[in-house]
């Protein structure tokens, strides 16, 4: 049985979550193809062809696919599913937008946010904001999964799969893309970064967030994150939000500054390899998951941390 992985891409770049989803797919079957949907996305397909373990790459292109219109994406995948027993989609906002449509069109269950492949029909996924893990066995002939990429290691490079074109699914054209406003940043992408520095409500203002969190992140080559409280208060933009309702990250190092550690935030970062918490409240729940804690006011601790990093040549 062959399985299809849908590539996470922005028409120009292949995102790392694709490599991680390939790893998940290889636990289901050894015949793994990758579908790249976009417009002018040949470079993405070529990058996908280099992922180790990939049998072939399918490239479907259209204007609607270039704008990630869910109806067109779902129609494209459904059109290909005659040849596959399962489709695995990275569980990004984009993936979650169309994967359930694919499942509904195929009249099968959606299995969201898969954390572990137990067997070809049995999967583990989080429920209740990650406070419980559910293991489910699917009786459907075809499986539609979204995969939480941070739970899987990235498949390496070294493959040399062929690239074939596939037909783009037609959209009923009742949804029209109007415009897009992307946050421009030289920092690494939050879900792919090796180090993440996050700020919480203790920052008190957007200016303070900018002044405290960003220089530290830049010194470490880190991505910037925020707690929901900080985002809701307007200190940081929406897409910085780490947590159950925001992004789920699992970097090598996660530094939480002025973040108390609400359940919903912990659900988004507790799988990080090393967690550092800086908080002046010694009883803050964040310390219960932190490997290293500093009970200190960030106003003193962050400048000291910057100096200590400079001292070791950072």
């Amino acid at each position: 049985m062959a399985v299809l992985v849908v590539a996470d891409n922005d028409n120009a770049h292949l995102r790392d979550s694709t490599n991680k989803t390939v790893t998940a797919a290889l636990a289901v079957s050894s015949d793994v193809d990758v579908l790249v949907m976009g417009q002018g996305a040949k470079a993405v397909a070529d990058a996908a062809a280099k992922i180790e373990g990939v049998r072939k790459v399918l490239l479907a292109e259209s204007a609607d696919l270039g704008h990630a219109v869910a109806e067109a994406q779902a129609a494209t995948v459904v059109g290909l599913m005659g040849g596959y027993d399962a489709v695995l989609v990275p569980a990004t906002a984009g993936g979650k937008n169309f994967a359930p449509r694919v499942a509904a069109k195929l009249d099968v269950a959606i299995i969201s946010d898969v954390l572990a492949i137990v067997s070809a029909d049995t999967f583990t996924r989080p429920i209740y904001a990650g406070n419980a893990l559910e293991t489910v066995q699917s009786s459907d002939a075809k499986k539609v999964l979204t995969v939480r990429a941070t739970a899987f290691k990235a498949a390496g490079e070294g493959g040399s799969a062929s690239v074939e074109s596939a037909s783009a699914g037609a959209d009923a054209a009742k949804t029209k893309f109007v415009s897009e406003e992307m946050v421009k940043s030289d920092r690494p992408e939050l879900t792919a970064a090796k180090i993440v520095v996050s700020g919480g409500r203790a920052m008190g203002s957007a200016e303070e967030f900018h002044k405290v969190i960003e220089p530290l992140a830049d010194k470490l080559g880190a991505a910037v994150g925020a707690s929901r409280a900080a985002v809701d208060a307007g200190y940081a933009p929406n897409d910085y939000q780490v947590g159950q309702t925001g992004k789920v990250v699992a970097p090598e190092l996660y530094i939480a500054i002025g973040i108390s550690g609400a359940i919903q935030h912990l659900a988004g970062m507790k799988d990080s390899k090393v967690i550092v918490a800086i908080n002046k409240d010694a009883d803050a729940p964040i310390f219960q998951v932190a490997d290293y804690g500093l009970v200190a006011d960030y106003k003193n601790a962050v400048p000291e941390l910057m100096d200590a990093l400079t001292a070791i040549g950072k």
Partner: peptide, 15 residues
Amino acid sequence: EVDGGLQTVEVQLPA
């Protein structure tokens, strides 16, 4: 709210 920013779409009703 999409990955990395905001997207505006126009949908015809019913939707």
